[in-house]
Amino acid sequence: MTTNNELLADITGRIRSAEKQSVANIVEIGRLLELAKEALEHGAFLPWLQSEFAWSERSALNYRRVFHFAEALKKGKFGRKRDIATLDLTLSALYDLADLANDAVAMPDIFRDEVLALIKLALKTRVSRSVASNFLKEYRRKKDEKEHTESEEDRDDEGDKDDSEGDDDGDTDEEGESGDGDKDDGTPEAAIRSGVRTLADRTNLVTQWHEALKDFDPAKLRDVIVSLQAVLQKIEVKSAAKSAADRAESRTKRLFH
């Protein structure tokens, strides 16, 4: 006789299997959409989506990005080679992670570590959209806090070095006055600080520079970048739609005039 616990265990297993199949279907749809986009003329993809499936550009983009993410995982671009089915993600979390992975390809210094951290989490436990969102907020907070602390320590070290050099010869050149309290460790934050520092040195804004750096917030910069990407995407979608409409109008004029 089958107990409720046995029945529920069987149901759970079947649902998980069906969910993994859903992920495989999403990957396959994304692959086919990529093929269709390549086969269609420029500007014809969106009208084709609408006429065949009544899908939005965002819906198609979700499928395509999951496909690209699955391929990246297979090739080991995010750590060890693995199948996307090994990640315990809800579908909404999968779409979000695929979006983040796409950002990581363009800006690895900012987003790659976040993708790796979420992959590691999804290998250990179930990850929903809310779980991923809260995890990233805490991850970014700790990262920004660490970078801020390291930046403060670098400035203190450089300040001590400048004081020591000043005591040695009693002369201070222009570079000695401004110092270089920001080591470029290869991160976008360090590159920005370096650029602002250069601007400050050239415009004699050394005091203002130190004040500005205190308020520097990498998290805000990341949010700005993501927002600008969303705006750019909307512009590209509108541009593609306009191009398709212009071509349709041109064909109509050739037919009837």
Rank of each mutant, 00 (worst) to 15 (best):
G159H: 13
D160S: 10
D162T: 11
D163I: 09
S164L: 05
S164Y: 06
E165R: 14
E165C: 06
D169S: 12
D169Y: 04
D171R: 13
D173K: 06
E174F: 15
E174T: 07
E175F: 14
E175R: 13
E175I: 11
G176A: 13
S178V: 14
S178K: 01
G179R: 05
G179N: 02
G181P: 02
K183Q: 10
D184I: 03
D185V: 07
G186L: 01
G186Y: 00
T187E: 01
P188H: 02
P188K: 03
A191Q: 12
I192H: 00
S194I: 04
G195N: 12
R197H: 15
T198W: 07
A200F: 10
A200I: 11
T203E: 05
N204M: 14
L205K: 05
V206A: 02
T207S: 15
E211K: 11
E211W: 05
A212V: 08
L213T: 13
K214D: 02
F216L: 15
D217E: 14
D217R: 14
P218M: 08
A219N: 14
D223E: 11
V226N: 08
S227Y: 10
A230E: 09
A230W: 04
V231Y: 10
Q233I: 00
I235C: 09
V237M: 08
V237W: 07
